[in-house]
């Protein structure tokens, strides 16, 4: 199994945000997590990416237990994530904002910075090239020299993707990548996710837009009140009674 969680549980005081969730992510697929507001989806992401330590349970990535690793170490292993909102430095260009995304693959330190060593120059070039490459991948080449503050919501989402991709990930967790963008742009972002998968990157996303998920995902997990209530292909999920009751509100087709 590529990445899996075993009995993953997170309690915030008396509130059980994620309860005993077993979930496995298949390599090279688009995996989706859906569920009503407050179902624990984002918390689940935070547990996997090392933002919160779980109360109990395990996260295993490529056979290695990453449960207690800090998030920067998890990123180094090749697990990237995006946030619902991406805070960028508005007074700098998009390219400048993305360059730092490859920092984790570089070694130059303060001494390199002060003496402008060869290593620093080489690594700066490497980071810049990586940034240009990922901006091209997400379709923002023409916006590379725009100020980050002047970008549209959709462009910001793409920059978030670019930042995650600049870390050279094997798997990317996307937290509501299509929230707040219009239907046309949503399709563009869905195409981008498919492009990521065909480039060999596994995708796992949280999303509320049902139509998009049903078309896009290979596998869906449904959370409700922190518990996994269903897991399967979009077809199975659509016909699952528990899901219909909990989430789709009685109607089988969203």
């Amino acid at each position: 199994m590529f990445l899996e969680t075993k009995n993953l549980t997170k309690k915030f005081g008396g509130l059980v945000a994620v309860n005993d969730v077993d979930f496995s992510i298949e390599k090279g697929k688009i995996n989706a997590i859906i569920g009503p507001n407050g179902a624990g989806k984002s918390t689940f992401f935070n547990l996997i990416s090392g933002f919160h330590p779980p109360s109990s349970g395990q996260v295993i990535f490529k056979g290695k237990d990453i449960t207690r690793l800090p998030s920067n170490k998890i990123a180094e292993l090749g697990v990237a994530r995006t946030f619902q909102t991406t805070n960028l430095f508005d007074q700098a260009t998009v390219l400048d904002n993305v360059i730092v995304g490859h920092r984790l693959r570089t070694k130059s330190n303060l001494v390199d910075a002060i003496f402008r060593t060869k290593r620093l120059k080489a690594e700066e070039k490497q980071c810049r090239e990586k940034a240009i490459e990922v901006l091209e991948f997400v379709g923002l080449t023409s916006a590379a020299y725009k100020l980050a503050g002047s970008m549209s919501q959709e462009e910001k989402k793409r920059v978030a993707f670019a930042l995650a991709l600049a870390t050279d990930p094997e798997i990317v967790f996307l937290d509501e990548p299509a929230a707040g963008v219009n239907p046309d742009e949503t399709e563009g972002l869905a195409a981008l996710m498919e492009k990521m998968v065909s480039a060999g990157i596994t995708v796992c996303l949280i999303e509320h837009k049902m139509q998009m998920i049903m078309k896009l995902a290979d596998k869906i997990m449904v959370l409700n009140y922190g518990e996994k209530i269903a897991e399967g292909t979009p077809k199975e999920i659509r016909n699952n009674e528990m899901v219909i009751k909990a989430y789709l509100g009685g109607s089988a087709i969203a």
Partner: peptide
Amino acid sequence: RIVHSLTGRTFIAIRNSEDLAQTIGIST
């Protein structure tokens, strides 16, 4: 030199968002 190096970019990334900096692999 610090500000215009990768080290400086790392600092600026922490200023923008510490959470984001950490998820892109920076030891904050």
